[in-house]
Design a protein around this nucleic acid. Sequence first.
DNA 1: CCGGTAAACACAAACGTTTGCACAAAAAAT
DNA 2: ATTTTTTGTGCAAACGTTTGTGTTTACCGG
Lengths: 340, 340
Amino acid sequence: MSAKQPTIKEIAKRLNISISTVSRALHDHPSIGLRTKTRVKELASELMYEPNQAAIFFQQRKTFTIGVILPFLSEAFFSAAISGIEDVAGKNQYTVLLGQSRDDAEREKQIIDTMKKHRVDGLLISISKHTTSYEHFEMLKRSGIPLVFFDCIPNMPDIHYVACNMVSGTVQATSFLLKNGHRVIGLINGPEKLYASKQRKEGYQIAMSKHRLKYDPSLIVNSDLTKESNCEATRQLLLHKRKVTAIVTFNDYVALDAMQYAHDQNIDLNKDLCFVSYANLPLAQHLKYAPMASVEQHPYLQGQKAAEMLVELLGKKEDEKETPGSYKIIVDSQLMVYNI
Amino acid sequence: MSAKQPTIKEIAKRLNISISTVSRALHDHPSIGLRTKTRVKELASELMYEPNQAAIFFQQRKTFTIGVILPFLSEAFFSAAISGIEDVAGKNQYTVLLGQSRDDAEREKQIIDTMKKHRVDGLLISISKHTTSYEHFEMLKRSGIPLVFFDCIPNMPDIHYVACNMVSGTVQATSFLLKNGHRVIGLINGPEKLYASKQRKEGYQIAMSKHRLKYDPSLIVNSDLTKESNCEATRQLLLHKRKVTAIVTFNDYVALDAMQYAHDQNIDLNKDLCFVSYANLPLAQHLKYAPMASVEQHPYLQGQKAAEMLVELLGKKEDEKETPGSYKIIVDSQLMVYNI
DNA sequence: CCGGTAAACACAAACGTTTGCACAAAAAAT
DNA sequence: ATTTTTTGTGCAAACGTTTGTGTTTACCGG
């Protein structure tokens, strides 16, 4: 059946010309006569010749492959982000190698190894929330593999990244509640050490001071984002000495747990207790209890930007001169208010 | 900085031995003395030598890469499936190249081309719902690239695939409603030509005849799965001359639209009108109106099985002898009843 | 008619690895 | 002491391309 793939050599032999001539003919090299060019091209398409990319990758020391490592594709944010990545990758002749870390630092490291083995040209990473050591990232940098972080970025100097401005998003979210008359607003934040958590906290504080309200640290509770932890955090806020009338949650999933918990405590949602969160889940309209508003983080856009950045880095790699600076892009977040 | 990757040649030179010896030493070839073996290995790890996979891929005519093409990662089903795929791929030293067809036949074809260019060893495909021509699949087969379909499979002879038995799932779903006293049950099905639709229809009929009820074709309506179409289908069923008290829907997303529409018509859900569907969305518990039950299709398992099948095919490829038969695996579906 | 130039092509090296085969030295068998 | 076997290495080809540097032929102006 499948007569093994014809090679450039085969074509050369049949046409009684040299391999190099065939190669150049196929690439429209100027130093090849029109006659031979057409002869070569005709035979090539007749034999259904396709260049052996493996050989080319090898020869050019480039695989035209970019690795993408992220925690979970099941999170809407990431599946949207990877679509953005895929699109710009495809436009630039790159293809994407996928790896899910499942929020496991060990797995993440392992995936990085595999990707390195596979000689990806560059890497796009949203780090797992349990990644504490950045050794493997440094290692990659040392091997000269360009790295662009997105969404969840490590606390390292001189890295390229695109992230979302969660500060402004949180200011918007909190201000929205303040404008609606709420004065005692809780914040269920993520793990304390997470950069994303810091930003939310900062945004919360800014919004408060903007409205000349004094910042009450006890209104912020941290959750490790498990269902239990989310409920516990909600419980704490509900038990707060001041009557909390609104809560900003780390993301929509946290909001769901919190709202369910509150509902189970016979609290009238979106009346006695309002929620605002992050992510803008696509199913929001179908949810039993949806938050009043959610901060859109434009995952597709972030994916696009990150991929574009990487492609650019890969391009300039040829110039050999590494510009010492690092690229940073901050995508603005945006509060989406639901009218239910 | 990054002194360019050390090669096997470099090691050979430093140790004053031949390249082949180094290669064999690193592979624990029996014909290499213990002394040299350790010497080689020590220097290798000292230089942080890593084999150039690109060269190896080229040399072995194998990339240890499998391509995965599916419609949308944003659908929970597929993100679960790809996790299964990734897991078994990783266990077998394969890595996965991703492509989303977005239910666009043209895109699908293009992705296949790219993957072929990248010389993937094999392909895992869930075809787009708009794919009508199977020419590109045939072409792949002719080039000797093993192909395994999963979930959404084309109507072609001699293909390898793993799919879910939607017939039995539908029998279960319909029987569940019948047992709960419903007698006039509607079915909002997908596009008529889809294999998945045929199976659901068949299951519906079987359940009916099992319960000695006569099959009423007008109780089955087709939808193209857009929101409008879903609502229109619901409308038709609600206007049916017989009073429909339960509806089986093509999947959870259809159910959501249908339930919303019904609710807007002031119908008391899960009382005057019950729903059962497919997919078992993870967010089901948080939904405003969830179906009473949903058929679980075990996407992770399907992904696993499909990947395992492909890996096996890739393994036996070496024996060159193509066994003419084709592999088929049918995963059983299972009705999950929610207790709300 | 000669030197020069341009056009069209061929040669060969290189990319890094694996692997069949040949070969030497040492060990074992005769 | 000679032959055979074992053990350890080296040589070189092969995988399919690209590309720098020759080499040939033909044409041109002078």
